[in-house]
Write a protein that binds this DNA or RNA. Structure first.
Lengths: 151, 151
DNA sequence: ATAACTGCAAATCATTTGCAGATCT
DNA sequence: AGATCTGCAAATGATTTGCAGTTAT
């Protein structure tokens, strides 16, 4: 049921992108990096370092947290994942290669994170660029909300 | 030139709000808390814990960082300040009692933070509430941008 | 061969906490 | 008086870093 199984081309594509990235930067293709990439693209939705670590170990792959932290930066640089800091605690990551830009609603009563894609935000981006004479590289509208029944 | 000097009523108002808050919660009106409040409402724009600490000491007020951290929570709870986590590093705060909801553009090349108020975002908020059946308590659109001349 | 990588443990940085002594009410 | 505060120093939690040994190219 995971993405890796249902659509092997997905993984092939990102692996190609990643290996090129490594080559272009004189970096090595290590088993740890490939295992991380496979695992990340098999995870649905968001994950943090602990979850990734746990999953890799569960699949019989020995890897240290330090290596995970270090290599996540590579995935970020190559544009294969996105990083979020929802409130406090560990940073959250998510695959990004096949995904549209989307935004997040954090439901503070249950902890759920919902995604939504809202083209109007692209318009706002454009307005900001014109008003301030700047280039908006990324934006992170987090909407903090609760379910309707207020406590 | 600071706000405290130019408009003494401002401070009077927030002090009243804060003292009521303390009383209602069975908390004490300590010199540290009052000094922090005065300093915060004299600061233009954003500040972090170190800056607040530095300013208080500069004004001859001895206070520990721990006390600052602890009391900032009280100002947050009473709605007198807002907290932001721009990227990594220390959290940033700003007074909020007299301020409209506004959003932030972080200029990643120079580190500047610009504010803007954009009513369209209020509309988006409303749409989200209707679409998902939730109540949006707050939102934090941070737009990360650079000046037009790309390096 | 050799520069890059991994894993460990120690270091760091922001923030929180435990506690003894001080202080509001 | 008595609960709440403050300040210190130690604890925490996430992430980074130094380094010795390992590995991809």
């Amino acid at each position: 049921m995971d993405k890796e199984t249902t659509n092997p081309e997905r993984l092939e594509t990102v692996e190609k992108v990643f290996v090129s990235f490594l080559f272009l930067h004189g970096l090595r293709k290590t088993p740890e990096r490939i295992a991380m990439l496979k695992e990340i693209y098999a995870i649905e939705s968001h994950f943090d370092v602990d979850e990734l670590h746990f999953r890799l170990r569960n699949n019989g792959f020995r890897i240290s947290r330090a290596t995970i932290y270090n290599n996540l930066d590579l995935f970020l640089e190559s544009g294969l994942i996105r990083k979020h800091q929802f409130g406090k605690g560990m940073a959250q990551y998510e695959e990004s290669y096949f995904f549209d830009q989307h935004d997040h609603i954090i439901l503070t009563d249950t902890g759920e994170v919902r995604e939504f894609c809202y083209p109007r935000i692209q318009n706002i981006k454009k307005t900001i660029e014109e008003t301030f004479g700047i280039v908006v590289d990324s934006h992170s509208p987090y909407f903090y909300a609760t379910h309707k029944h207020k406590p």
